[in-house]
Design a protein around this nucleic acid. Structure first.
Lengths: 193, 193, 193, 193
DNA sequence: TATGAATGAGTGTTCATTCAT
DNA sequence: TATGAATGAACACTCATTCAT
């Protein structure tokens, strides 16, 4: 119980410190930020990599939860993406550092995110709501790039999570080229240029 | 004469090694990869930062050249983007590492890339070829995320530069949502190689 | 508690090693001599300069103490010099190295030594016990050379602190030229312990 | 012939550079100062130590010449010291660095200086012109400290060679304590306090 | 002869990790 | 359980020295 409290505190501080200092953050920095001695940190996470893995696991857990909450299987694909995107960006901004850090999420964790997303894109292609000339994996990869970039920018504080998410989603769904139809969603998130 | 050869060899090896090991690559790794002693490396680049700067300058130089060659001011915006994208990705794949490394390109260098691209997006918005509900800087940022992601993937060798570029361009311009009109450009880039 | 012990041990070993190898002594040498790892040394003195400063401070502290103990303001100048000289040489022999090392004692420290000595020489000139044809600062500089040289020789173990001090003092006060009067003081310092 | 010219130029530059930067002066500094490439320096002096030895030899040569010129065997001891002291200080100031540098002058060289000086002091003691309560070697050592200190100060430019020499000689011969007799020599070198 | 290029050994410093309390 | 102390392995960097031209 109490252990969990301390471990959680350390993890949250780690996320913050790593987001600031990137890979160059030392365990000293993290321990100091969390208000414990370096050695204490080792009681909870027996190595730097262990700490990073725990952090990744935590992030993946949050993302998994977001996906489940979004119930993406029950709504049209564009709506599902809309639901899920902001969640990704909000969560991701907390764990940006991970993107640049060594320990890839354990295969199982990554799968827990990738699998439902891949299914989502496949469904979209099949039901004709997403373009059919690109494989689902490619679409997912591109979507991932967009989300990851948005996370970086949101984390740097240049823009809020909200407008960043809206813009990314609009461009991903509708493209950057102008069309005749009103682009409602993006317009809502931003000023009416 | 001979100096330039060695310096170039070091730079190219540095690009390769850094692409693999990210920021964690040590000068030892780079020197070893380039087949010279650590101290020799210091003859050419008197500090780690100097090496990174030289590398960045090199990358920026190539990118600048690509942009100039593309003559983006003389063609419609979508065509200009098509011309420029593949160049970015091909060049960028050689210098992925830089994206994650500290020494940001010197202001002037970065400007030499950003300025013409910003102008391009502004022109697209003005002439109605790009959507007008998002500021040019936002569109550019999103485009940048896409290109950077594509670079990473192309560098990891998962896909070739060619199809990666085509896919990225198609989604950025037209979006992921299916439309009635045939999506010629993406189709061409993928299947007719 | 225990910290102080280790720090002190390091400092004393540093004094010894530096006295032997002069400026060329590496931190490795010092650490090895003190029986700790190089990195341990850094726990106590976060940089080479910090170690040297600590050493200088220590030496200055001892010298200050010697001067105070000697109560040089309460006795005739020659007697004051007699009292103070042996203290300087004994203390100095422990810290010879410092004379050759970069980080000059902090202004305040040096002042704490120089000021009272300058006053002493000025008093001697005024009350006629010291020759009046040379400024006090010159006399002090010459006295300093003598003491410093004596320290070097005493440290090299060629002679003991005792006879070295006596000889230096005798020559400084009375000169090397023979006089009619018995040279009591030097004789006393030499043979009568 | 031409070789000698270059070698001499290097040696003189070395003396200057070393006097400035002490032990920390690198061969690069010296070579650069002398206007030759590092590698060229190696043609003349096959190692750092060789260069230093050559420098020491040069200094000793000059000192030997000074002593011979002074014809110290033909005049009373105090006069001999007066003649020799200024020469030592003037020459020494050019080679201060050597005092702090590792390669002690080769035994034979040092002897060429020490032997005549020791003889001089011994003669002084025997003929009653120098005090007899201290061994000649001690007197010589003390005289050496004085001269070396004077060299340092003269080299630092705090005072000229001339007054520094006069003061040192006066104190060494007559002592710092005031006497009834006029202290002619020192008075000449300095202002009549 | 004179030099630019290359190198190995060493320096100060940092950091993840282990140990004793 | 929590911590201060200690350490070894690594890193960026310097320098005296050697080699090929």
């Amino acid at each position: 119980m109490l252990q969990d409290r301390t471990a959680t505190a350390i993890l949250e501080e780690a996320a913050r410190v790593l987001a600031e200092h990137r890979e160059s953050a030392s365990l000293s920095d993290i321990a100091q930020g969390a208000g414990v001695a370096r050695s204490t940190l080792y009681r909870y996470f027996p190595s730097r990599e262990a700490l990073l893995e725990a952090l990744a696991e935590r992030a993946m857990g949050e993302l998994r939860a977001r996906i489940e909450q979004a119930q993406i299987d029950t709504v049209p694909v564009p709506e599902a993406l809309a639901r899920v995107t902001r969640g990704f960006i909000a969560t991701g901004a907390k764990y940006v550092a991970l993107a640049y850090l060594s320990p890839k999420p354990s295969g199982s964790d990554e799968l827990a995110i990738n699998a439902p997303m891949t299914r989502l894109f496949e469904r979209g292609i099949e039901d004709g709501s997403l373009r059919g000339d690109l494989p689902a994996t490619t679409l997912l990869a591109i979507y991932g790039d967009l989300v990851q970039g948005a996370i970086s920018r949101a984390a740097q504080g240049d823009d809020g999570v909200e407008p960043t998410s809206a813009a990314v989603l609009a461009v991903f769904l509708e493209g950057a080229v102008a069309t005749n139809e009103p682009q409602v969603r993006a317009a809502r998130g931003r000023n009416r240029g």
